[in-house]
């Protein structure tokens, strides 16, 4: 009897495997062509001196990276990125959480406030940048007009002063990210059982801040971890506001990682060098993702 069954059994896995391969093929091919190959190409490029339009290239090993280490411009760009991320991430998380808590606690206008805060996320940054340029304009901008009316005779030139440009861009970054973190926190808040708040009240958590510390904050743990990583990655990726509003200026004061990469690659056409910067960026992002998975394994899920 087993003789009669075995050939069938043997035949089935081949057919199944084939079907499996065929079914995964579209996704696998798309992944390879769209993501894997370009990434590998960028990695390979990072070890060459290729420049766009040049007939050939040479493998130069780690020369691009040693040049990066010595490059003052790159150091400034890295430092600016860290400052930008250091302002945007904590602020957009704290404000997003605050907005989410207020909306959740509110009785009226929930949908309205949700939409208002989420609007920047869905709007086109390049288009909104024009509005920001007007708002922050040193002479005709409403912000400085208001400041002057408040008695500040000499308000800053937000986007054209090297002291203020990074802070101004960070403020726009917070405005962009806040809606996103808020929506994630709102989703996290709805997952907290109402009963726990009732229990906290019965247990003596009189003040809202007690209940926040006892219930809300710990139970938002997994959400917060996700929000932190996603916001870090989103703010490391800052590019469009810089490209549209300041082009890295004045005097490289707003030069950030991706803008430096763009400038090296598409203005100076040094694709090899640009790819080396991309690789640094990739390592940072992958590092953040790795940290997140580590933390997820370690903590904050309560089984």
């Amino acid at each position: 009897m087993s003789d009669a069954v075995l050939p069938l059994r043997r035949a089935a896995p081949i057919g199944e495997a084939l079907a499996g391969l065929m079914l995964t093929a579209p996704a696998a091919i798309a992944y390879a062509v769209m993501l894997l190959l370009p990434t590998l190409a960028a990695v390979a490029l990072a070890f060459t001196d290729y420049e766009l339009g040049m007939p050939g290239f040479a493998w130069i090993g780690l020369d691009n990276f040693s040049e990066l280490l010595a490059d003052r411009g790159f150091a400034v760009s890295l430092r600016n990125t860290v400052i930008y991320v250091g302002i945007v991430t904590p602020l957009s998380i704290a404000l997003g959480l605050g907005a989410a808590l207020l909306i959740e606690a509110g009785i009226r206008g929930r949908a309205l406030f949700r939409a208002v805060f989420f609007l920047p996320v869905v709007s086109l940054t390049v288009a909104m940048a024009a509005a920001w340029q007007y708002l922050l304009h040193p002479t005709i901008g409403p912000l400085n007009a208001a400041l002057r009316r408040l008695g500040i005779a000499d308000p800053p030139f937000w986007l054209s002063s090297s002291d203020w440009v990074l802070a101004s861009l960070a403020a726009i970054g917070v405005w962009e990210n806040l809606g996103y973190t808020m929506v994630l926190f709102l989703a996290g808040l709805t997952a907290i059982p109402r009963e726990l708040y009732a229990a906290a009240q019965m247990d003596g958590a009189r003040r809202a801040v007690d209940r926040f510390r006892l219930v809300t904050w710990p139970l938002l743990g997994p959400t917060t971890l996700f929000v932190v990583t996603i916001t870090l990655i989103r703010s490391v990726r800052v590019f469009d506001t810089v490209a549209v509003l300041t082009q890295g200026g004045p005097n490289r004061a707003s030069e950030v990682l991706l803008y430096t990469m763009y400038r090296e690659g598409f203005t100076y056409l040094r694709l090899g060098y640009s790819a080396a910067i991309t690789l640094v960026f990739l390592v940072i992002v992958l590092g953040l993702v790795w940290l997140q998975t580590k933390a997820l394994d370690r903590k904050i899920h309560y089984g």
Partner: peptide, 21 residues
């Protein structure tokens, strides 16, 4: 009075234990 000030304890149907503690 607020729940915290009533000197009452309650056992909930879902138990309402704090999952992180």
């Amino acid at each position: 009075s607020r729940a915290a000030d009533r000197d009452i304890a309650m056992v909930f149907q879902s138990y309402a234990l704090y999952p992180h503690l």
